[in-house]
Write a protein that binds this DNA or RNA. Structure first.
Lengths: 213, 213, 213, 213
DNA sequence: ACATAATCGAGACGGTACGTCAGGTCTTTTT
DNA sequence: AAAAAGACCTGACGTACCGTCTCGATTATGT
């Protein structure tokens, strides 16, 4: 029964959509994800609840779209003159010929981004929700994470061709050696996440732990 | 005001405590963390709601205690003959003289543990909650994670003394190079988490990415 | 201020009007007045909601028009050959010279009508709504009830002229003595509404309660 | 499944019950029955919605209880010294030996009661609702109406024994001849409901419409 | 052994938010 | 210009849980 046909998206009010996304981000930042309610978002956005339920299946989905929207807008702002850079604000990782230096530059920027108090609450909320809800997590990874990771793959391949990185190295594994420690500290708050740590990770990963034979 | 004098824990009913922990774990496994409610736990445990509110501040705290309890019981079961191994089922990482082999052994076990469908739901729930709630996260890290990490520090120090690992290596950073990639794949579900991956991580981390000079 | 100028009724679609009335009656009969919604009527009639709001101020008004329409159609069907009988199916009360017999005939018919399960739901709904909403009630009385009552006035006047009814009797009061008891039982469901009861009412009302002096 | 066992009424808060009844009556008086909402009653009573839903099945049921409560309290106030009069404020109809005078007295009082603007809204609302909902209507009749009607039966029987009323008269029918016309005018608002009308009804009913043979 | 005091199971309470339904208004497109 | 369609804001619905509270009915000491 109940075919539950989806609404006609061509008639959708973009004003409402924007207001909802803005309100969602604002509320998550102000009161946290758990205390952000659909009713609260609707009220803050000056919108009927039904308008949210019509277009999104869950609070997490609203926040996800709001977040992607924000990311897209930020990217568009910061780099409108370099359309060749690709989407998602991905300028690519610089290639100065010095892999260590390039990676440190990028990972330090990542550290700064993760430590940014503004985006912290929604990012943590979305990540946590994605950890529990596989569908949401997949969406999160596909839309936001993978494009970033691909940049590392590209840069590492270039380094291999330049003879900086060993042939046997799998770029996909290598990239995780670099990224995962930062994510780990940020998510679990085991120890402070600093530039120095980013540098140390790069150094350890490139040189390896074992003594040279 | 109302000093809210804490209850007399000596009179606490252990039967209720156990029933609550069991119910909490069962429910999280069956319906997931979000749909697990305090009322549900109380009903399933055959307990008044107030008995939960008297002893725990939040649903997350209940689950945390239930989880620690379960971990302790599992540890006690699997290794009652080696009480010198310390608490938390921490037998220590074997030291056969071959660091790579030892790490692979341990990390493969970690992979199996993370892939275990029984403990998956509560572990994910607790981790996710800890990502959002710093206090809970700290408790989680302190009680469950850090003891494990210290074992790596110990083993890596031994390897340094044995001349297997370079002097400049910071064991704390090194350990994160090994552990974080597994955690990363498990939490974010980017790619499958396999024994082969554990091996690859060890190999890449020990040998380093850079070509030998 | 927007003068809210009424729509041009000459352009009104009679097809829609009929469909709406039919749908309204059908729904009230099927699910009851309370569960009949404007949206439901519109959907069932294959009509936009606005088409209802354009022409009627309320759900009750729709039902009222539907009801009047139905009454008019029924009357037209049952007595198209006696146009002199007046509107609203009002053939008038027969005058055989025997007032008691004539009244019993008519009141028994009224009993049957009230007991008809088809028209029961909408009639009750409309009456109930009219009890609360004076404007609607007035409309109901004026359009449906009063014409009927006038027939009694006419018949009773004739009876007075024929010397069957005392001079001092006020036909308006007399008629209510006859009609109201039936209405009372039907509305309040105190006791069954039967032909025998109709006869008893006529007998009691004509003879009076008091002993003859 | 779901046995839906009723709550433990011994634990019921009488303070809440009273507050809810008061709020319900007040709101129906102020904004009318249709615009009175359960949420509104709860808010005005300073009570959670669930406390209403726990004890009453519908808005109409709340109003019914409130109304019966009020009636009972009024009765208790006005005649605490005559407990033998029976419940429901039923003092009985006076018996001065002059049936016409006694009935006029009582029916005039009834007219005044019906015309009282304070109790009008809830009484109309309850009556209207009872017309549509048979269960509610039955409750209304049984609790409020029948006790009143029985008083007429009693008085009319007495009049028969005193030789004032004919033997053949059925008191149950007679009483409806007296009461129903008032109810009719009040419910349907056909003509004003006055003392004069009450007197006329009594006179017509007692003397009968027909000429004396 | 027993008084007494805290905990226990139970669940009613004032609340908040849920997700749904319908009301009545507005806009777009079709007839 | 009216009609079909349906998105929109509003607000009430009835439900689920929240965390607090009040009830007897067990316990479990500490005289």
């Amino acid at each position: 029964m109940s075919a539950q046909r989806p609404p006609d998206s061509s008639r959708r009010s973009d004003r409402s959509r924007r207001a909802i996304c803005d309100a969602a981000l604002a509320l998550v930042g102000e009161v946290g994800y758990a205390k952000t309610t659909i009713e609260g978002i609707a009220a803050r956005a000056g919108v009927g609840k039904q308008t949210i339920y019509r277009w999104w299946p869950s609070k997490a989905a609203v926040l996800m779209e709001a977040f992607l929207d924000m990311s897209a807008r930020q990217a568009a702002e910061s780099a409108p003159e370099t359309p060749e850079a690709g989407e998602d604000g991905a300028y690519g990782i610089p290639d100065t010929g010095d892999l260590a230096a390039d990676l440190k530059l990028v990972l330090r920027a990542t550290v700064d981004e993760l430590n940014d108090p503004v985006s912290e609450a929604p990012t943590r909320a979305l990540t946590a929700e994605g950890i529990i809800d596989p569908a949401l997590g997949a969406q999160f990874v596909e839309a936001l994470l993978e494009p970033q990771l691909q940049l590392y793959v590209t840069r590492l391949r270039a380094a291999q061709e330049a003879g900086e990185v060993r042939e046997e190295v799998d770029p996909r594994v290598a990239l995780e050696l670099l990224i995962a420690p930062l994510t780990h500290r940020w998510l679990l708050r085991t120890l402070p996440l600093t530039h120095a740590y980013a540098d140390a990770v790069v150094d350890h990963a490139l040189s390896g732990l074992a003594v040279r034979p």
